[in-house]
């Protein structure tokens, strides 16, 4: 279970998360929807441990483990995975090199031996195929020169190979056409299990047609202002976020 209690965080002395509360039981998918600038990406960075964000109060635990006390790599090894809103381009590091380093880091943390090259290649091929990613592309430097859609599918590929238990998807649908959204969403759905919690951060309802949430939360000004069923997403699509922005001010 993901439990976030009264979480406060600031960047450059400016408070962005202002007493954020959220509980996501294992096996559930929760959506966080909110206007631009409400702190959605900040939440995802704070949960995954980015250094620029200073936590000033509250707690965040995953299956009882204190996430905020862990380094980013420890969080990842504990099952946390952030699919970035803007995946990084890493010149000079081939995707395959990166994937193998990440998989082996996870295995090492679990006390397992490194994956053999044939097993690794087989695993990558299988998942890449499902996401329509060519092996040629994976020999190139990570995300360099990739289109927005290719980068996002690459994030899902990493997720598929690392098999996280807490998936944080930050605006996975931004910049994607419908076909690409469907491919990426199917990838996420394949990861759903009774042990997995998924947090889908999105501005638009559209993605939630493909990754159907159990609960929808409305976030504005660093807080959850309202929670409801999946119909809340449709309501937001109709009415927009204006009323929430105002309420929070």
């Amino acid at each position: 279970m993901l439990e976030i209690r009264d979480l406060r965080a600031e960047v450059d002395g400016k408070e962005i998360l202002r007493g954020f509360n959220l509980t996501v039981p294992k096996g559930e998918v929760h959506a966080i929807m909110g206007p631009n600038g409400s702190g959605k990406s900040t939440l995802s960075y704070v949960l995954s441990g980015k250094e620029d964000y200073e936590v000033t109060g509250g707690s965040a635990t995953w299956n009882g483990q204190d996430l905020l006390a862990m380094s980013p790599e420890e969080r990842a090894q504990a099952g946390v995975f952030l699919a970035f809103q803007y995946p990084m381009e890493i010149p000079g590091v081939a995707s395959l090199t990166f994937l193998r380093a990440a998989m082996n880091a996870h295995r090492k943390a679990r006390g397992e031996a490194e994956i053999s090259i044939p097993d690794f290649m087989r695993a990558v091929k299988t998942e890449a195929e499902k996401l329509s990613i060519s092996m040629e592309m994976l020999k190139r430097p990570l995300n360099v020169g990739f289109s927005g859609g290719e980068k996002k599918r690459n994030e899902v590929l990493q997720m598929a190979l690392l098999k996280p238990t807490l998936c944080l998807l930050d605006e996975m649908d931004s910049g994607l056409d419908i076909d690409a959204i469907r491919i990426a969403a199917e990838g996420v759905n394949r990861l759903r299990s009774p042990d997995t919690a998924v947090v889908v951060i999105t501005h638009y309802q559209r993605l939630l047609n493909y990754i159907v949430p159990d609960v929808v939360h409305v976030m504005a000004r660093g807080q959850v202002l309202r929670s409801g069923g999946k119909e809340l997403a449709l309501e937001l699509e109709e009415s927009g976020y204006a009323s929430y922005d105002a309420e929070a001010a």
Binding site: K50, E73, R75, M88, I90, V93, A101, A102, A105, L162
Partner: peptide
């Protein structure tokens, strides 16, 4: 930011540095 991206995938600090420097 690149360091964080690598670490967020479970790659330890020292290895992440080594990957970026080698690149």
């Amino acid at each position: 930011d690149l360091m964080f991206y690598l670490k967020s995938r479970g790659i330890p600090e020292a290895q992440a540095r080594a990957l970026l420097i080698a690149a």
